[in-house]
Design a protein around this nucleic acid. Structure first.
Lengths: 314, 314
DNA sequence: TACAACTATTGATGTCATCAATATCATTAA
DNA sequence: TTAATGATATTGATGACATCAATAGTTGTA
């Protein structure tokens, strides 16, 4: 018995479905005589008559009945393979658009982007540093594949996957670390506090940590707001100021004076970082790869902190 | 993208398994150049390079890794289809060997054999009337497909399926039925009792009903033993004798004088009838068909008897 | 550097799938 | 009862595909 072809499987299923040789042939975009010949050939190959031609519409024989489900299963799995192939091509040769918030980008992307490019050499990566609000908007428009941001976001239409929690550290230009003293939230001198501009959710998170409200009348330090963590750090250092720094910033040696860094305890305020995708997002393997690389990158600086309080970004 | 053939699927899996073009070709009984050409063709069709030829042994690319499982699934289902086809051919065109005990055969086979032949017109049926002991032996030798006998049998290596229980009736040539009197086991006049020869388990069952032992010294009636129920019935009638008849014998109108038939109560001794098959028996549909037809045949004479005592055949 | 083992390429050939044309069959209407 | 219609089966020609033999090219080892 020689090989059954997938075309023959397709023809059998079409005839079973339509109950007519001519209709099945049309459905398969071949001529009726081809269909007739190929089904007869299959029946001879396997030495089983699958269809009773005497009935109108054409029906399966008892033997055919006992085999048709497995014909269906086989073709179903062939369909799955074709889909997998399409998806693999898209994943390996298409584009992958990443949106990332500015308070993560400078510390994550230098490490993970090269890795991602190396392991997906035929994928074209596009990275956009934009705010959470803009990321969510572009995800919904399908103009981004994935957002890398502080979770959770309040949006039921998108799929979120939290990856890790990182605590905030006090960065204080006047408090030289002796490494003996433990800091709490109450040690934050609000008169010297610097924040990112309001569109950054980390700014909102810091306000929550410090029990601030938007209408609070603060000192003049808070009037000047910055758009990047690097500017924030420079401002703090130049003005004997103070801010809160996410621990991920410590990945980047050299931009922080480690003498000014102080962990907070009881509790340690923290933010959660994760990915957000559209429900119809299909490049699962690229997403998994990105998530794995993000986790690998932050692993060295993640601490097992027991008394953590996650501060939501919205 | 034109159709992927199952041969190509087979070649991919062989190369993945062996890590060598020449070994894979050997495994598939084709030349190395055919394998090389066909795998390259597939890779061009789907526009994905599946194998990294630089490694020794040859390994899948990352893309290949993400697809290989679905190639495996597809070929597995193709294998299943081939097996189903083989099994269907065997079931519909092969042989079905039935062993049945003589105390069942004359009452069951006339009804069910025609039915079985009608619904499996291409199957060659072989029916052997032999004792339980011989049926079990031939089942184990795979020279029988199924045994139809009194269950349970003491044999863990075979598969049993009990179908129904039938009670024994007294058949007494001297006790004309008035349909008023109820008989119990104690009404059995042992001096007139006739039995089948010892190799028939029904004989054993009757001895148990009557609390007989092999070494019991009975009257001269028991010295002459018969091999068929019909002979038994004739002996009883010709000699004013007595025996026990399974209810299934009442299916056959005309051989029994219904005046001599008496149900037994408190309790009604009964035997269980079922099928026995070898664990590797594969013609499941034929077996199910047989079992269904047996049950349909005995349904008219089966009684809902409440106080039943099953007498085991061994 | 030579050689062995392996994969890739190419042209010839056999096999298979398909089509167009036609034969055959079954059903329906006049 | 015959003719028409719709459907399936058959057949020969043709294009597509799978395969092989021969050879080119590559890689690793002694």
């Amino acid at each position: 018995m020689s090989s059954i072809s997938l075309s023959q499987v397709q023809y059998v299923l079409a005839l079973h479905r339509t109950g007519s040789f001519s209709e099945a042939a049309n459905a398969c975009h071949i001529t009726q005589s081809t269909l007739s010949t190929m089904i007869k050939k299959l029946e001879e190959q396997i030495d089983i008559t699958l269809f009773d031609r005497k009935t109108k519409p054409i029906k399966l024989t008892a033997e055919g009945e006992s085999l048709i489900d497995q014909f269906k299963v086989l073709y179903y799995e062939y369909d799955n393979l074709i889909e997998d192939i399409q998806e693999t091509r898209t994943e390996y040769y298409g584009t992958f658009k990443i949106g990332i918030i500015p308070t993560l980008a400078p510390f994550l992307m230098p490490f993970i982007l090269k890795n991602m490019v190396d392991s997906h050499q035929k994928v074209k990566f596009t990275v956009m540093e934009i705010t959470t609000e803009e990321i969510l908007k572009l995800l919904k428009l399908r103009e981004l594949d994935v957002g890398l941001l502080s979770t959770p976001v309040i949006d039921e239409t998108l799929i979120q996957n939290p990856l890790f929690a990182e605590d905030f550290l006090i960065y204080d230009a006047t408090a030289v670390s002796t490494k003996k003293r433990k800091y709490t939230v109450d040690d934050i001198d609000l008169s010297r506090l610097w924040l990112l501009e309001e569109s950054h959710c980390m700014s909102f998170q810091i306000e929550k940590i410090c029990h601030l409200k938007k209408s609070d009348n603060l000192d003049t330090n808070l009037i000047y707001k910055s758009g990047s963590i690097l500017s924030l750090i420079n401002l703090v250092e130049a003005n004997n100021g103070l801010t809160l720094i996410p621990r991920i910033a410590t990945l980047h040696k050299g931009i922080l004076n480690s003498d000014y860094l102080h962990p907070i305890v009881s509790p340690s305020p923290a933010r959660e970082v994760g990915t957000v995708t559209h429900p119809n997002f299909s490049k699962k393997q690229l997403l998994a790869s990105l998530e794995e690389k993000v986790l690998s990158s932050v692993m060295p600086i993640l601490r097992t902190v027991t008394d953590v309080k996650i501060i939501n970004p919205m």
